[in-house]
Design a protein around this nucleic acid. Structure first.
Lengths: 188, 188, 188, 188
DNA sequence: AATGAATGAGGATTCATTCAT
DNA sequence: GATGAATGAATCCTCATTCAT
């Protein structure tokens, strides 16, 4: 009997190892060997499951993105009213989990990758669209030009995240509070 | 007596070549050889004038940062009133020059570098502090809590820039307009 | 399952290749590429098995030293009486094998390395101590101040070796005879 | 009027700088730039006066050798009787000046160079011959086979020097004492 | 499925040396 | 005489990737 189901397990292990390793070193300059060691397997096997280093990274990014997407979806389901939905999106976008070194590095390097790498760009676009659509949906009952307000709020979220990540003077809590003030202004 | 005075010329050429090369490839993964070729000299000479690859990058970033700083300063001098100063800062921060691939890549990769590289972090901090202080100064006559408003505006600027850079659906003009709406709201 | 057990073979091949290459060129200024080529493998593999060029050299030196140590030990076991032991040590120290260009260059360059490289110094010290202790052991039944006589004899051995290596007018045989005269004087 | 006599001054400065630099770093791996800086001139000028790096080294070695030769000559002139001449030679050969890191490194690296570099070999041979002839001259009135005794004593001197240089357990004074004991045995 | 073995293709950096002034 | 400028040629080392087993 062949060992069944090894593939998804191995892939998941590699994805986690990638995030973990990138996080620990704070840089995308990690080697396949490092990732594989962290995942407890040989570099050759990593290449066997993913075709290349780039594919490993992409899978890891997709994982982070979908984890974020799940969080937002859950927050929206649990939310109470338009204001609640807005706050849920913001909360999730600036939640603690996005600020560990692993996620931070992943995001920043992902940004840096996007102008060059079409697959990264596509992934990022999906994220942008979904956030925008969620925001519009939540804002429509509250403001006249929901689309414009959504863009502004989305930019504010990203900017606040950036600051929280890069600026030691701006801890994540202040970043979230800063956006929440704006949300409060909108929800009245 | 030897030919003299080449140093500043060569250094400037290398800085420009760095920005140009990073811009063209859209990635920090450029080799010293590429930069040197672009600057029309040998890799050895690049190492002669700057000590290392990292120093070349740092000098390039410093150049971009100081170019931006000069722009802001000029805009502030020319500005008329608090509202004018605000609009000047926003205009300069989201000016066309910041959106060529070279500047974009430099900024994004600089962000990605900052969590790891202390010198990059220091440089970025200088930028953040200066922007914040400029915004506070311009906002003080207009709002009660200038500091909080400055943080929010700074985040909005960075977020809008990020969107304009990363999202094809958000051209620089829309990004600027988006921030200007907020400025208008503040200035009343 | 992969091909297995290459490591010791490769390491041995690299050590031999190092000695051979250093010997052929008569200088420590050999490149990893040269050594690897001599050993029939890529430079990358050499770095894979030993961490660095320095480690390759050290392993080669250790090999030479242990080869010499084995020779001395065998000579001591086979020796008959104190005088025999003395003659055995001298014979082994000035045996033909120490005079091929490879061993010579290794020794000389090792000497030159020792004041700078702590690991080389440590290795050399081991050799010195062992030789001294062997000599003292063999001399104790024969002379009053065995320690002093051992130091003198050790110096004489090293000096004779040096002459034999450096001076075309002093072939190894004469060098050995020169020391043996002294041994004969001691053993009476 | 041209500046006269610059050449010998510059050359001497470079030779001293070479010895000094080799001594400070304890290795022959010094760059022409380091030597030139130590001598207070540009690397280009060093090449102007000596044709190549090798020539600089050779000149430095020649300097050390002739300095040693002068010392021996002076000691012989001042010496009283055959025994005094012998002691003078030994004293000079193991004098303090030969044990500073500069001279040590020079000697050791010179040894290492000799099997490869014909010029170094020639120089070394001169030294060997002169020492041997001096020793024979001093020994002839004292022993039957002066030539054999001279070779043994020369080897002992070199071996003692080597030990003193390489072995922290053998300070220069003990090395000299060790040889002097032998001298005393000969002079009776 | 899994891995040790192996390498080709760079990449940063160093340095002796040359040259124009 | 003197030097800053400039470079070609190496050198060590790294790493993604392939392959035989």
């Amino acid at each position: 009997m062949p060992k069944v189901g090894a593939e998804p397990i191995r892939k998941a292990a590699l994805i986690n190892a990638t995030i973990e390793t990138v996080g620990r070193t704070g840089s995308l300059d990690v080697t396949v060997a490092q990732i594989a060691r962290e995942a407890g397997m040989s570099p050759a096997l990593a290449h066997h499951y993913f075709g290349s280093k780039g594919d490993i990274f992409l899978a890891a990014m997709r994982h982070i993105l979908s984890r974020y997407g799940d969080g937002v979806r859950a927050a929206l389901v649990a939310a109470d009213g338009s204001g609640g939905r807005l706050r849920g999106i913001v909360d999730e976008s600036l939640a603690g989990g996005n600020f560990d070194l692993a996620a931070m590095s992943a995001w920043l390097n992902f940004y840096a990758l996007a102008p060059t790498d079409p697959q990264a760009a596509r992934l990022l676009r999906v994220y942008h669209r979904r956030l925008r659509s969620n925001l519009i949906h939540a804002l429509r009952p509250l403001v006249a030009d929901a689309a414009a307000e959504a863009d502004r709020l989305a930019a504010l979220i990203d900017g606040a995240y950036l600051r929280a990540v890069l600026d030691p003077d701006m801890p994540p809590d202040r970043a979230r509070a800063l956006v929440m003030d704006e949300v409060r202004r909108i929800t009245g």
